[in-house]
C-alpha cells in the first residue's frame, strides 16, 4: 500500500503541492487526473524520491521512503520494486531497444547473463506487441507509439510490484492510445501489480482506473471508485470530465 500524508512541495515561490493526502491499496489501479501544472508529476516523483517533498510523509507498505538516502542499499531495494513509464519514453538513445528493456537485468543486483537478459527483453517486447526484429534498433529509429511500447516493456522487465505511468497516451493517435490503455490494463491485472497513473485523457481513465483521484490547487479534490466519477457531485470533477470551459476551474484564455 502506498500512502501520502500532508505532502507539501514548493519550487521557489511556487507552491505546487499544498498538502496531498492519498492512499493506494495493494493491487489496485489509481489514476490521478487534473489540469496541466497542478502537480501530478511532482506527486508521482515524490513517491519515487526523484523530487524530495518539503514536508509530509510518503510510505510504501508502512516504510517511510522519504528517509531513504540516495545510493543506499535500502533505496536500491526500494526502487527495485518499481517500474516507471515516462511521458516521453525516456529511452536511453545510446543503447539499443533490447539493452533498454533489459537495462536492470544487465547490471546491479538483478544481473543476469547477456543471453538471458536478451531473451527476457525479447519476451517483454512481444508482450507489448513488438516483434523481435526491433530488438536491435535504436530508440530514435522507432515511431512515438513504438517508443511508448518499449518504455512499457522496460518498466515491466524486472517484474515490479508497483508500476507508475506518467501520461501514457500523450502524443499518440486515438487508436494507439486505445492499444496502450488496453496493454496497461492487461499487464497490471496479469502481474497483480499496484499501479499509479497520471493523465488528463478521460478515455485512459475509464480504461485503466479502479479508483480516481482529482488533483486541483495542490490538494486532492475528490477521490473515489471510477464508477462513481460521473455522479461525484463535485463541480470541479464534473467540469474536468466534460471538458467544459464553464465551471469553477479557472481557464486562462
Amino acid at each position: 500500500m502506498i500512502e501520502l500524508r500532508d505532502v507539501h512541495k514548493s519550487f521557489g515561490p511556487k507552491h505546487v503541492l499544498r498538502g496531498v493526502d492519498l492512499k493506494i491499496e495493494k493491487g489496485k489501479s489509481l489514476v490521478i487526473i487534473g489540469g496541466s501544472g497542478t502537480g501530478k508529476s511532482v506527486t508521482l516523483k515524490c513517491v519515487l524520491g526523484l523530487i524530495e517533498a518539503d514536508t509530509g510523509l510518503v510510505t510504501v507498505d508502512g516504510q517511510d521512503v522519504t528517509r531513504l538516502r540516495q545510493g543506499s542499499s535500502e533505496r536500491d531495494a526500494f526502487l527495485a520494486r518499481f517500474g516507471m513509464l515516462f511521458q516521453g519514453g525516456a529511452l536511453f538513445d545510446s543503447l539499443t531497444v533490447w539493452q533498454n528493456v533489459a537495462f536492470r537485468l544487465l547490471r546491479g543486483s538483478l544481473k543476469k547473463t547477456k543471453e538471458e537478459a536478451r531473451e527476457i527483453a525479447v519476451e517483454k517486447l512481444r508482450r507489448v506487441g513488438l516483434t523481435p526484429d526491433v530488438a536491435d534498433l535504436f530508440p530514435a529509429e522507432l515511431s512515438g507509439g513504438m517508443q511508448k511500447r518499449v518504455g512499457l516493456a522496460r518498466a515491466i522487465a524486472a517484474e515490479p510490484e508497483i508500476i507508475f505511468f506518467d501520461e501514457p497516451t500523450t502524443g499518440l493517435d486515438p487508436i494507439m492510445s486505445g492499444v496502450i490503455n488496453e496493454l496497461i490494463r492487461e499487464i497490471v491485472v496479469e502481474m497483480g501489480a499496484t499501479a499509479m497513473t497520471i493523465t488528463h485523457d478521460m478515455t485512459s481513465v475509464r480504461a485503466i482506473a479502479d479508483d480516481v483521484a482529482m488533483l486541483h490547487g495542490g490538494k486532492i479534490r475528490w477521490t473515489g471508485p471510477v464508477s462513481e466519477m460521473d455522479s461525484s457531485g463535485d463541480p470541479y470533477v464534473a467540469q474536468f470530465i466534460s471538458g467544459s470551459a464553464e465551471g469553477p476551474i479557472e481557464t486562462v484564455r
Binding site: K45, L48, G49, L50, Q70, G71, D76, L79, A80, F82, G83, M84, F86, Q87, G88, A90, L91, F92, D93, F103, R104, R107, G108, S109, R154
Partner: peptide, 17 residues
C-alpha cells in the same frame, strides 16, 4: 539532453546512480 528528456530520472528509477 538526457536530463531534459527524463533519461536521468529513468536511470534513477532503474536503480542506477
Amino acid at each position: 539532453t538526457m536530463k531534459v528528456t527524463e533519461q536521468i530520472d529513468a536511470l534513477v528509477t532503474l536503480s542506477t546512480n
